[in-house]
């Protein structure tokens, strides 16, 4: 049984929080993406050969999108649950007749929505700098939603695990950003010398970037189904962890 009214309340309130800071939330990624496009797309890209028949400026779009998506989704979601814990307002959620389903659909749904809005803005920004077309638009949207869902859940776990602000920031900074940079955002894996092309495949982000690139241009470093599978697996793992957290009340209930 899911309390849809409770779910809706959580969802709309989280979105409201986002809109309250919409200016920063939108301006930062737009600015960052623009800078990347100016530096990599225009300045460097002009001297780069096409990759797999795709112009370099267009080639980096899915990777850049993934870079912003992973960072923003994780931090949005982790802050969404960390802040109420930090300020104490979480008492209300814990004392309400809501369980894991309402909480997740509310918080994670809102984080996903924000991510989709961001993705749209980034794609529009990219349009100002390069010309591109998306081969499988529906699959692209589906894939972005899946990744957003998975990393919203991941951020949620992070926000419950962290007991201070440093911890909240450290995972994205130490793991997410470097792995995304190394994950084939700016290059194709087979441009790497041996054995680095094989080692690179141990980086899970490679599959995400590659998967999104496939939905854009129909070609990629790894098989699209492997990418989908890994994304779904990560989603399932995060869901299981959260179900366990709610069952035991870890870091939520004293």
């Amino acid at each position: 049984m899911i309390g849809w009214r409770s779910t809706w309340s959580i969802y709309t309130r989280e979105l409201m929080r986002f809109l309250r800071t919409a200016f920063q939330s939108v301006l930062a990624p737009v600015l960052t993406t623009s800078l990347y496009f100016i530096v990599f797309g225009a300045a460097i890209g002009g001297r780069m050969p096409d990759l797999g028949g795709v112009d370099y400026g267009a080639f980096i779009i899915p990777g850049l999108l993934m870079l912003t998506l992973l960072g923003e989704t994780t931090s949005n979601s982790s802050f969404g649950i960390y802040m109420p814990r930090f300020t104490g307002t979480i008492y209300e959620l814990l004392s309400a007749p809501v369980g894991v389903a309402e909480t997740l659909i509310g918080f994670v749904g809102a984080a996903m929505t924000k991510s989709l809005i961001l993705a749209a803005i980034i794609l529009l920004t990219a349009r100002l700098f390069v010309d591109y077309s998306i081969a499988h638009p529906l699959l692209a949207v589906l894939y972005i939603m899946l990744v957003a869902a998975a990393f919203s859940l991941f951020g949620f776990i992070l926000g419950i695990w962290a007991d201070n602000f440093e911890k909240l920031g450290i995972i994205p900074m130490l793991f997410l950003t470097p792995l995304t940079f190394l994950g084939g955002t700016f290059y194709s894996i087979d441009m790497l010398p041996k054995p680095w092309d094989t080692i690179a495949l141990a980086n899970p982000i490679v599959y995400l970037v590659s998967g999104l690139r496939w939905t854009f241009y129909g070609s990629s470093d790894v098989n699209i189904w492997v990418s989908f599978g890994i994304t779904l697996g990560f989603l399932a793992a995060c869901t299981a962890v959260i179900a366990y957290i709610f069952k035991t009340g870890w870091r939520l209930r004293a």
Partner: peptide
């Protein structure tokens, strides 16, 4: 940061 009325309306919704 929340206005009073919205905060109270939220609580009502949260409780279903």
């Amino acid at each position: 940061f929340e206005p009073v009325q919205r905060a109270v309306a939220y609580s009502r919704g949260l409780f279903g």
